[in-house]
Amino acid sequence: MSETGTSTLREATIHRMPSAAVRNNRPRSKRKPLASLGLHGTLVLASLIAIFPIVWVLAASFKPKEWIQSTELTLVKEPTLANYDYVLTQTNFPSWVFNSVLVAACTMFFGILMSATAGYALSRFNFPGRRQLMLVFLVTQMFPVAILIVPIYQIMATFGLINTHASLIIAYLTIAVPFCAWMLKGYFDSIPTSLDEAASIDGCGPFMTFWKVIMPLARPGIAVTAFYTFLTAWGELAYASAFIQTDDRFTLSYGMRQFVPQFNPQWEYLTAAAVLVTVPAAVVFLYVQRHLVSGLTAGGTKG
């Protein structure tokens, strides 16, 4: 993106969708009614498949146990809030939420803090070691949980961090840092370099330029990266099940497993908990998804 210095960041990140709509003025818009029906039919079907499991779980969360476990097909029957009441008052669910929020928020904060500068350097400077660092980022995506989990476990044990949230935050940083740096590099690539040059003419050093000029412009990108990191840590399971041992310190993903043991699973509580976990995430997600579309591809589309 660095060569297309004419477009501003605003255009690059926000107005992508509409601009595409404007320029697609080829006769594809003149569809025959049948083609139009097929198109909308397929999309409606796909959308239904996409939202159905969510709706189904939402409906089930309001059903009492006997209706969840009946073979009769009902969307809602004898709706009740008892499941939510039980989950919120009779289980450790609230403290799992707190644990998850704490762990995910810290991971997000430290991940972004450490990787923002690296993303900028990767985007702007052609320094020795740049290619190698990019490769390392790619390779770290391949690391299976199995290889890192033992050494990290032992490091944690050495420092007495087993069964603490700090151990999870540190472990999640191994996932978050390469990922954040890479995402943010993509965003910085989409900010015209002419801004850097202007700042440098005005007497800003590289750090000043980064802090005063680029960071404010990259705010949407940082928000999306932050949110995505948050979600990753929010849903992680393997490290959580290896490092955390006591019920009051579980994160959501591991704690909720207790509702559905192999025998006698309590689906009514699980569904209620699932809804409680998903709703806040989904609301924020819908809010940032517009940036997500452009952000993900800002760097990747330039081949």
Partner: peptide, 26 residues
């Protein structure tokens, strides 16, 4: 390149402590 290196230094440190060392150890 010192400023570029300074900018990537935090990530490199974190990566080596949390990924490279565990990898070698693994």
């Amino acid at each position: 390149h010192w400023y570029a290196w300074a900018m990537v230094a935090p990530v490199v440190v974190v990566l080596s402590v949390l990924i490279i060392y565990p990898l070698v150890r693994g």
